[in-house]
Simulated assay, not measured.
Amino acid sequence: MHLFIRATDAGAPPYLYAGPMTYRGHEGERPMRILWDLAHPLPADVFHYAKVNTG
Rank of each mutant, 00 (worst) to 15 (best):
P20G: 14
L3I: 05
D45H: 13
F4L: 04
P31G: 05
G11N: 04
E27R: 11
Y49D: 07
M1I: 10
P41T: 05
R30P: 03
L35R: 12
E29Y: 11
F47N: 10
A10Y: 06
M21E: 01
L42W: 00
K51F: 11
P43T: 14
A18W: 00
M1L: 13
E27F: 12
A12C: 02
L16Y: 05
A7L: 11
P14Y: 14
P43S: 12
P31V: 03
H40R: 15
H40N: 10
T54Y: 08
R6F: 04
D45N: 08
D45L: 10
P20K: 12
D9W: 02
F4V: 02
E27G: 12
T22K: 13
L3W: 02
I5S: 02
L38G: 01
Y49S: 07
I34E: 09
V52N: 11
G11F: 00
L38C: 02
T8L: 13
V52Q: 08
E29H: 07
M32F: 07
A18V: 02
G25L: 09
A12M: 02
H26A: 12
P14G: 08
R24Y: 07
L42M: 11
Y49H: 07
H40L: 12
D37K: 12
V52H: 09
D37Q: 13
A50T: 05
H26P: 04
L16E: 02
D9P: 00
F47E: 14
G25N: 04
P41R: 10
A18C: 08
H2D: 07
A10W: 09
H26C: 15
K51V: 13
V52K: 06
P41H: 08
R24D: 09
P31C: 05
Y15E: 03
G19M: 08
P41M: 10
L35Y: 11
T54H: 09
H40A: 10
F4Y: 04
D37Y: 03
L35V: 15
Y49E: 05
N53L: 15
M21L: 15
L16S: 01
M21K: 09
G28R: 03
A18P: 01
K51S: 12
W36M: 04
N53F: 15
G28M: 04
L35I: 14
G55F: 09
L35N: 14
R24W: 09
L16P: 00
I5D: 00
P13W: 14
W36D: 04
L35T: 14
R30F: 10
L35P: 00
G25Y: 05
N53Y: 12
Y23Q: 09
P20Q: 07
L42E: 05
L38S: 02
T54V: 10
E27I: 08
T54A: 09
L16A: 03
G19P: 01
T8Y: 11
H26I: 06
F4M: 01
M1S: 06
G28W: 02
G28A: 07
M1Q: 05
T8N: 12
R33T: 15
I34F: 12
A50W: 00
W36Y: 13
E29R: 04
T22N: 12
L3K: 01
V46N: 00
T8F: 06
